[in-house]
């Protein structure tokens, strides 16, 4: 029983952590531009990007 008393709170806590993370990222705008995010990895961060 002591195992369960430890494991169940851990399991629920981890799940809640994931849920909280999802809520945070939703409010933070992480899901606003999914298509754009997949393209931005192709961009160079420096000024010399394809400006031409």
């Amino acid at each position: 029983m002591t195992g369960i008393a430890l494991l169940i709170p851990i399991a629920l806590g981890l799940g809640l952590l994931g849920l909280a993370g999802f809520f945070w990222s939703l409010g933070n705008g992480q899901f606003d531009d999914l298509d754009g995010a997949s393209l931005r990895i192709l961009l160079d961060d420096d000024e010399a990007g394809p400006v031409s």
Binding site: G36, L39, R40, L42, L43, D44, E47, G49, P50, V51
Partner: peptide
């Protein structure tokens, strides 16, 4: 349409 357009717009 493409990644180039994003950087062109933002940098430009």
């Amino acid at each position: 349409r493409c990644a180039g357009c994003i950087s062109k717009l933002e940098t430009g």
